[in-house]
């Protein structure tokens, strides 16, 4: 998935320009920090890690991307110092502590030429269960709908399913994708496709000219502002996770990631910084 990494890196570069002075941390930190988990959070944490390494030259931050469940498993097993998850913790995960560093929403996207301007929840459900096979059933032109869904195990899929109260085997996808960018490229190449992806990635790609359109959800526009004030229905926290006692190095990184200095980095990736 090399080129997806390249895009993530480019997005990261954009983040560098907005760099500010970071808060000073007492004492000399050193060592290696292994962070693993969600592929949505990974580009952000990788960028934060670069700034952190500059601040503490004797620290190495190693970010591995592989899904929220992987992040949870790794931090529990101790193979990672910090986990990353693009969702809130579940009840059975109460042995972990979540440190929210940003928020993100999941939005429906369609091709830019698609005349449909909004879909309500019932319409999205009928599209994804295959009940509405044609755009004319939801107020669009007469064309078959290409339903794009995510592969098993992704937290975006879990969130989407729980929001629309669907079971995994009720969804009738026409195309199954891995990460957000693959979904965006698929929709940009198919005038009749619909997909759900991270608002952050979708806004970034739409602003760089990709032929996609973000749809409002229940009348709420998918913007940074609506995710921040909580009015956007399908939003999620981006979390760093720790298990058990937190070492000074871990704590310093978490504090740094949550600090005001990282706001421009978070915003450059079209995520929503935590208050204030």
């Amino acid at each position: 998935m090399a080129h997806f990494a390249i895009v993530a890196a480019l997005a990261g570069l954009a983040g560098c320009s907005g760099q500010r002075d970071a808060p000073a941390v007492q004492g000399e930190l050193s060592g290696r920090l292994v962070i693993s988990g969600s592929s949505t959070v990974a580009p952000l944490v990788a960028e934060i890690g670069k700034h952190f390494e500059k601040l503490h030259p004797r620290v190495r931050v190693d970010v591995q991307s592989g899904g929220s469940s992987r992040g949870i498993a790794d931090v529990r097993r101790g193979t990672a110092d910090i986990g990353m998850a693009s969702r809130a913790l579940k009840q059975e995960e109460s042995d972990l502590v979540a440190h929210t560093i940003a928020a993100d929403g999941i939005t429906m996207i369609v091709h830019r030429s698609n005349p449909v301007a909004a879909l309500d929840d019932a319409q999205v459900v009928s599209i994804y269960t295959g009940a509405a096979g044609n755009w004319s059933a939801v107020g669009g032109k007469d064309a078959p709908i290409t339903v794009v869904s995510k592969a098993e195990g992704r937290s975006t899929l879990e969130l989407f399913l729980s929001h629309f109260k669907l079971a995994a085997n009720e969804v009738r996808p026409g195309i199954v994708i891995g990460d957000n960018l693959q979904g965006i490229l698929t929709v940009a190449g198919d005038p009749n496709a619909i997909a759900y992806v991270s608002i952050g990635t979708a806004r970034f790609e739409a602003s760089s000219g990709r032929a996609i359109k973000l749809l409002p959800m229940n009348g709420v526009a998918p913007t940074v502002a609506s995710v921040r004030d909580g009015s956007f229905p399908l939003s999620r926290p981006l979390n760093l996770l720790t298990h058990g006692p937190v070492a000074p190095l871990q704590q310093a990184f978490i504090d740094y990631a949550r600090s005001v200095a990282m706001r421009p980095v978070v915003e450059a990736l079209y995520f929503v910084p935590i208050a204030p």
Partner: peptide, 11 residues
């Protein structure tokens, strides 16, 4: 390739 990074246990 699609699912290994995201799979746990029996999956």
């Amino acid at each position: 390739a699609l699912e290994l990074g995201y799979a746990m246990d029996n999956h």
